[in-house]
Design a protein around this nucleic acid. Structure first.
Lengths: 230, 230
DNA sequence: TTATTTTAGTTTACAGTGTTTACAATTGTA
DNA sequence: TACAATTGTAAACACTGTAAACTAAAATAA
């Protein structure tokens, strides 16, 4: 694994490009991201960046990969702040971490779950890294379910068998799984995403002002109850 | 209200611009919207469009206004397909119409609730027309609540008094209102938006394949139950 | 009808974008 | 030292949105 000097330099300017991009996203929003802007700030000409990223979309994909990792880590941290047998706590911790991360990293979140980049098409290679964040949620619910703690309304929906690949991925992470867990996780996922984008698009504050967080916590609590977790 | 010949012509090319824009959005997605492209297709030069729209953002705002109106109309139609005293039916009808409209007009929906236009900032004047669609939802819940049909988990959240302007707007439409109705409506809104964007971003089909609609219906049914509507 | 004003459109131009190509400079290796 | 790989630059192309000046046509006033 020993890197040559050249590889080190290359890696370092690659990271400088990414961090400059994040700086611009933080300041002007993801929509204002521009290769020429990054090059300008780095004191280099634009085509130089093409030595490091095939094109603008490749850069965006790299940024999204980074963001997904950070997001997933935040979810895991929220979950792991609670004991392994405290299923309600783990669910709560993860859900709050979801919202909290979005509040603290709005542009980053919108980069992942909005469509701020003109003409950018979700890259294939992002699939796994995106699903990994979903797996955290699915895992939390799956664990609770395996422990018999999910007593809330489970669907009668028959899920397709093609879900098995998904299950396999879950079990590789040592997590229990089931079609019902997937379904409940999707439901929770939808709610969190809805709450979050409503907030980021500034629909909530007009109605709730400084009660937004209380509202979100309340909605999380409703989910806990509906799952029968507590 | 009699229009002069000129006003008629002006109105007609204005509409041609909008319909050409919709055509492009339908074909290439909202991100690919381009003034020059519209002009090209209309057989006219780009600066000509500036006689009809101050700039690109003004055009986008006009498009969003149209889309919001259509969306609101769809919600109302879904609601009104049920008797005025069938509160659960009206809620169901509206919610299904929400998802259905998004499925049938994905680019239009994303134009409203995604951020596909580079650098476009949500225009002030869109506030009222956007809220109007929310008012449909809030109204359905408010009616049911006034009829004493909402028995589900109502929050203990104390909402700010500044909501009064919102309430006034509702009562102008002859609808009952309350802080609890607002809160429950926001919750429902979040869920619908979350389900829909999960679907449009193609997260659902991977898990559910052709069961997506069943899943969404099931989630709507859960909301009906949680509201205590049935 | 003629003269005047308003309007719709074009031409030209500017500043910005992502991207490609050809070339120069630098760096690492044999 | 000679050669090869790598990293950058300069110039150009094809696109954007937008502004200014100008022309042709249409509506209005004399």
């Amino acid at each position: 694994m020993t890197q040559t000097r050249r590889e080190r330099l290359r890696e370092s300017t690659r990271e400088e490009i990414l961090s400059t991009a994040w700086k611009q996203i933080g300041e002007e929003g993801a929509a204002a991201l521009s290769l020429r802007g990054i090059a300008r700030e780095m004191g280099v000409t634009a085509p130089a960046l093409y030595r490091y990223f095939k094109d603008r979309d490749a850069l965006v994909t790299a940024l999204m990969t980074e963001a997904f990792s950070a997001f997933t880590a935040a979810l895991e941290a929220g979950r792991d702040a609670n004991n392994a047998d405290d299923y309600a706590g783990r669910f709560r911790g993860m859900s709050k971490a979801y919202f909290q991360w979005a509040v603290e990293n709005p542009q980053r979140y919108l980069l992942l779950f909005g469509t701020p980049i003109e003409g950018y098409m979700f890259a294939e290679e992002l699939g796994p890294v995106a699903q990994r964040s979903f797996l955290v949620l699915q895992g939390v619910i799956g664990e609770a379910m395996a422990a018999g703690r999910i007593t809330g309304g489970v669907s009668a929906l028959r899920l397709p068998t093609s879900l098995k690949s998904q299950y396999k991925l879950l079990s590789e992470y040592g997590m229990p799984y089931s079609g019902e867990a997937t379904q409940l996780a999707l439901s929770t996922w939808a709610m969190m995403q809805g709450l979050t984008s409503l907030y980021l698009y500034d629909y909530l504050t007009g109605f709730l002002q400084d009660n937004v967080e209380t509202f979100v916590d309340f909605e999380i609590e409703k989910m806990v109850k509906n799952l029968g977790l507590e």
